[in-house]
């Protein structure tokens, strides 16, 4: 190797470090109150207790940024509408899709897999069995997206009018137990609900054959310019790098699962 390319390489690496440091050190613009919406979903946020992973992450973002962020609780479908219109700056634990990429930016902080929770009496041994039986209905949260295979399942059943939508998970468990639907898609945040004896004895869990899907801070492209998005992304990256995210997850999951979800 000649000396010239070596110098260039070092210079490039330094420039990159300086740039990254600049973003990392620069706090987001707090000249106006910002808005962040949570949605009720298992361990992510519970209205009953007012606590959850997303609540903790929101608090940490508020603390680190020093910004005034008004936190509200909205249905997930409403959150995506507001993110698209620019009426809301942030939400948490969102996954991307082709349509969402047009109006939302993301800062990933964990990933997880999706599972199909089905009634034992539905006779479903594999995920594919669910589609084949026209008598089976799925419960889903309006506007939710999942892993590719789960998305295909929801979309194909919806085309056959075999999906009942709800604004959150709670009624889905109820209608699953009432046998009004025979399956629903769950994530690790929903594990505590599965510990209820009613659900545990009547259901079984099937895994979708998809890799874990990254989740993150959702930023409205309409309300936050790219430079601000980069600053918030750097803030989330810092939270991941110093272990803050993993510590928050450890409050709700066993350490191994928290590690698996936050180190991806």
């Amino acid at each position: 190797m000649t000396r010239l390319p070596q110098r260039r390489l070092i210079a490039s690496a330094l420039a990159l470090l300086v740039s990254a440091a600049g973003h990392a050190g620069e706090l987001p613009d707090c000249s106006r109150p910002l808005s962040l919406a949570l949605h009720e979903h298992g361990l992510l946020y519970s209205r009953q207790s007012g606590e959850g992973i997303d609540r903790d992450i929101a608090d940490e973002l508020i603390r680190r940024s020093g910004c005034t962020i008004n936190v509200t609780v909205l249905p997930r479908a409403r959150i995506w509408q507001l993110i698209e219109s620019g009426g809301l700056d942030f939400s948490l634990s969102g996954i991307t899709s082709e349509s969402r990429e047009r109006f939302a930016a993301f800062a990933w902080y964990f990933s997880n897999k999706y599972y199909l929770l089905v009634r034992r009496d539905a006779g479903v041994q594999r995920v594919g069995d669910f589609t084949k039986n026209p008598d089976l209905r799925l419960g889903a949260i309006r506007s939710f997206r999942y892993s590719p295979t789960a998305n295909r399942l929801v979309d194909s059943l919806d085309a056959e009018q075999r999906v009942s939508f709800a604004s959150s998970l709670t009624p889905l468990y109820e209608i699953l137990l009432a046998n009004q639907v025979q399956g629903m898609i769950i994530e690790p945040f929903d594990y505590p609900a599965l510990e209820s004896s009613h659900i545990r004895t009547q259901t079984t869990i099937l895994e979708f054959d998809d890799p874990p899907v990254p989740h993150g801070l959702i930023m409205s492209k309409r309300s936050l310019p790219p430079r601000e998005q980069a600053k918030w992304r750097a803030l989330v990256d810092d939270m991941r790098a110093d272990g803050s995210i993993e510590r928050i997850f450890e409050k709700y999951f066993k350490p191994e699962l928290a590690r698996a979800m936050t180190r991806f």
């Binding site: 209205r47 009018q161 009942s164 709800a166 604004s167 998970l169 709670t170 009624p171």
Partner: peptide, 16 residues
């Protein structure tokens, strides 16, 4: 011809 059930949830209970 068409029928849909949608659930709006509140803490502790829901509307259909």
């Amino acid at each position: 011809h068409f029928e849909a059930l949608e659930y709006i949830s509140f803490p502790q209970h829901s509307w259909t």
